[in-house]
Amino acid sequence: MVLMTHTPPSEQDSMPKTRTGSKSQRRDRWAFVGLSAPAVIWFGLFMIVPLIFMIVISFFDWRGITSQATLAGLDNYERLVGDQRLQAAFRTTFTQIIVALPIVFSVAFMLAFFLIQRPPGYRVFRVLFFVPAMVSVAGVSMMFAGIFLPQGVVNSLLTAIGLEDLTRVWLGNLSTVKWAIIAIYLWGAIGFNTILLFASLSIVPKELYEMARIDGAGYWKRMWRIAFPLNLDFVGILVMLEYLFLLLGFAQVVILLTDGGPGNASVTLGYILFEKAFITRQLGYSQAIGVFILVIGMGGMIVIRMFTRRKYE
């Protein structure tokens, strides 16, 4: 994911505004609008229009494409309140977010700051940390299906170090399943964010650290008191993206591995949206859940932004 910032259009009005100039400029403007029109329409059709449909569908009772949709008013939204499975999903997702995001970003930031020092072998780390991001969600899920098997790597390592009592059927156990799937997330997310933070940290002028060092600030202090505040804006953007991913996209792992089970133990918000739409065929209700998740998503982003906006003095 790239986050482009808006560089102001450079050299604005560099052409003198003679009569012929402005006329050809106007024609030029239309040429540009024409050039971008196909992309604007294509993008809008599958990225913007669906959001509008989503809101519209949420007010209907609709049991799948072959049946008739009937207007349901706010019924779908009222159902949200008493839905036990949804509440379980909400709890699981937020527990996962609250545990995973601080781990990802504290470790990733430490590693990124470490790599910035160009330690021996940092090139190897840079490549290696990015490797998990190249493996598809289906690939990662299938790989971890094997790792969490009763006879898989985790249990065999535990047995090897004498902790046989701790062996579990990780994906089939009520209390371990939601941590097992979040471990799958951590496997890749730490490295990916390390590399992005590395790029952002590379921009901080070296002199700043040098000055701090002369002032007696140690390694730890330089990391958290200088580098961290200077990159807080960017950290905030990454936190937002990972937050949104855990709310929705991460559900793919659940779809691939557990279907939310056993019981409600690994139901996440994103999974329940998928389940209501494509398994239990309650299209209207699923979209009410979708709107609910997006509202939580936007709310959470505002909170994250509040905490990470750099305060200029």
């Binding site: 971008s36 604007v40 669906p50 989503m54 569908i57 559900a251 299209l283 982003m301």
Partner: peptide, 23 residues
């Protein structure tokens, strides 16, 4: 234009499964 396409980074596509499926 940049803001418009920038939306693509913020809105998770996973949210649009149903509308896209229907379209």
């Amino acid at each position: 234009g940049e803001v418009y396409f920038g939306i693509g980074f913020i809105i998770p596509t996973f949210a649009m499964l149903v509308p896209v499926f229907l379209m």
